[in-house]
Design a protein around this nucleic acid. Structure first.
Lengths: 188, 188, 188, 188
DNA sequence: CATGAATGAGTATTCATTCAT
DNA sequence: TATGAATGAATACTCATTCAT
């Protein structure tokens, strides 16, 4: 699987063959098929690993952030997310770059429901958020806005802009929006 | 090229062969190679067409929106964008879905610089925006947030949420953020 | 298809690859797949050709033999059958040798029903055959006996025995059996 | 070897792998190679077993049939042969069905010479058979006719026809033929 | 100009066989 | 002695590209 990520980085998705993966892993093609039933299966398991890591990350972060003001909670999560995407030679970032080829959606659902669980917990601790009208759409947009801005930045870093600034702007955007909707500062 | 988009929709990216494209176009493979130097070239030109359409759309919208309040301008553009993505059987949406396989980034730059040109013009007409600190990062995040939220919604529509509401939330987010940064309402 | 038969002879069934066939045919593998949808399809068409030839042979023989005494009719058919199996470098004999690998039965049915048609016609012209009790089983056994004896001899010729003698014995066997069953000589 | 026959029945000849055979036998592939030098060897030994069983069957039958009239002797042998082919889940019938894949001929020779030995003994006890001209060809054809008719029937049973009738017809054919050749009834 | 038959390099997958444990 | 993970040669099939007609 390691080799799968490496080959993805090295050869791109179309350039990745089972032979490549085997070579990188230092084993024979035959051996690859001992552990994976097909090339598709390799990709599926890579994707699953990614989803699992996201879920694990969110769950580990949960206790540390439920009591923080929203902005800080978001900041924390986005930094953890960046770490996750970049760890091990950006393996997960590669995955996202080629997402259409992977059955990523299936697993993204898992991550998403994990995020929802976090949202629930968070809201129950910060009941003023319930004042927000149409919480569903607002969450949907804010989450997508945050997640995709980070992915886009990491995939094609812009030398004029720093990552930390991107996160700060996202944090502010969320804070401003929530403040405006609830009529009160989201910071304690 | 029409045939390219059709086959993409019909057969998916991996299922699309030059033969398919030729058949759909009602010509021979040989003829396809009269007009395109390679399969890659077909995709490249499809992508270019998309970028051109975006640029055209922005330029056509420009005069109608430079004088509008920011929120209304954004709302207008996002609806035009949706129309563009969905026109002709969602051909451009298909493109975005498989973006990693197309050299999309290259052309997206064009669209982006067109958007930047719009921003410049808009700011010069709304000088209060100059109060915003780090205008670059703020534009970057807001634009990506808006664009990707729309793409995400259209690619995987969520039956609980309506498109118009998504746009409204995006508009509000931008308004709230700008208001907070400039200290004055973005609506006239 | 010619190449298919040749390769079968040269390399045996397990040694025959699509590459071999293409090489023998003097074309590329790709071309083979222009005309046959799969390796299986090549075999199927070879088998079909065989069945067609048998049917054709029987039909062509029919008028010449319906009025002959049974023994002579059988002798004539068996010689024609031998010619067919041996023509073009024994191509059809090869097929029979590997029959289990081919969907031969399907096509053999055709040949068999053609043979049945012949039997019907023959019997209607020689009504004394109707005296035979259990004509079905008797035909079944006699036909299989004749056909497989010939195939066996041609597949593994026995240097102590001559083909013509084999045919003569078959003819006699049939004559003797029929005579005994109908109580009259089968020769006019 | 049991496992070999079972897998042949279960998976067909092309579906049979060494792994299958090992699994069915409840041992590891490695162990299979302790007892057989190759897959080919497994098949060879299966075939040898078959030939040995035929020889054994004929030898065991010998004393009981040398004194019988030819027809009864044949009837007896064919029924024993059927029993052999069908015993243990038709294992030997499977073998014959895929004969071209096994080096069956080599071993069939053994069975044949055993049959010849029987013929010799039988003839010496029934000297009237010596009147038959070209005894070799006649035996060859009669034996093949009988054997292949039975194999064909068992491989692709015909619901319109019963096995016992097939045997009876074969017996009659032989009787009629011998009677005609020797000028006297083959039954005592 | 258009055609589409021909090409053949490239790829996923299988499986008999080996050999370190 | 038994195991089964590892090997890698072998093979059916695909498809972008070419070029004679």
């Amino acid at each position: 699987m390691d080799a799968g990520f490496t080959s993805l980085k090295l050869n791109g998705i179309d350039g990745t063959t089972t032979k490549h993966i085997a070579d990188i892993a230092g084993v024979s093609v035959g051996s690859v098929y001992e552990y994976f039933s097909s090339k598709e299966d390799i990709y599926a398991q890579m994707t699953k690993l990614f989803a699992d890591e996201i879920v694990k990350m969110i769950q580990k972060s949960l206790p540390q952030i439920v009591d923080l003001p929203l902005g800080e909670a978001v900041r924390f999560l986005l930094h953890r997310y960046k770490d996750l995407l970049e760890q091990n030679n950006e393996r997960f970032l590669q995955l996202l770059t080629h997402q259409s080829r992977f059955a990523i959606d299936q697993y993204v659902k898992e991550a998403e429901s994990s995020l929802m669980a976090f949202a629930m917990t968070y809201i129950s601790k910060h009941p003023e958020l319930l004042k927000v009208n149409d919480l569903l759409t607002n969450s949907y947009v804010l989450i997508n806005a945050a997640v995709f801005s980070v992915i886009r930045y990491l995939s094609q870093p812009n030398s004029m802009i720093e990552f930390d600034r991107v996160v700060e702007v996202i944090v502010q955007i969320i804070e401003h929006h929530i403040e405006a909707l609830t009529g009160q500062p989201s910071k304690t």
